[in-house]
């Protein structure tokens, strides 16, 4: 189901836009899980870019890479959420600003 060639550019622009929204979201949200979700959003934008380029170039490497990104995202989500649970148990809050021990 190959469609018009001019879908590539809009798709890429969509990817850029989603990525930007994700970036802004990382800074604007206070709940750490929400921040994580914005990171997932960024990953998805990247996936979209891969797919678009894969189609544009006519090779399937992009598809395979998206496959791997997906897998890694899953693993990362699992571990990240586990960390968040552990941190919440420690600090009793999910506020990003309260995790401020990363200084000397």
């Amino acid at each position: 189901m190959s469609a018009g060639a001019d879908l590539t550019t809009p798709a890429l622009l969509l990817s850029a836009g989603l990525f930007a929204i994700g970036v802004v979201g990382v800074f604007l949200r206070r709940n750490v899980i929400t921040v994580f979700m914005c990171v997932e959003l960024m990953l998805n934008a990247v996936n979209l870019a891969f797919i678009a380029f894969s189609r544009w170039r006519g090779t399937l490497d992009g598809q395979v890479l998206v496959f791997f990104v997906l897998t890694v995202a899953a693993a990362e989500a699992a571990v990240g959420l586990a960390i968040i649970i552990a941190a919440q148990r420690n600090r009793d809050t999910l506020d990003v600003d309260s995790f401020n021990l990363l200084k000397w």
């Binding site: 189901m1 469609a3 996936n47 598809q63 998206v66 496959f67 997906l70 995202a73 899953a74």
Partner: peptide, 24 residues
């Protein structure tokens, strides 16, 4: 799907929306 990648489209729903978000 519209960009011609049915496999990834399904995978997206199954893995991402179906597993990762459920985990969230």
């Amino acid at each position: 799907g519209l960009l011609g990648s049915p496999f990834i489209a399904v995978l997206q729903v199954v893995v991402y929306a179906g597993a990762i978000m459920v985990l969230f």
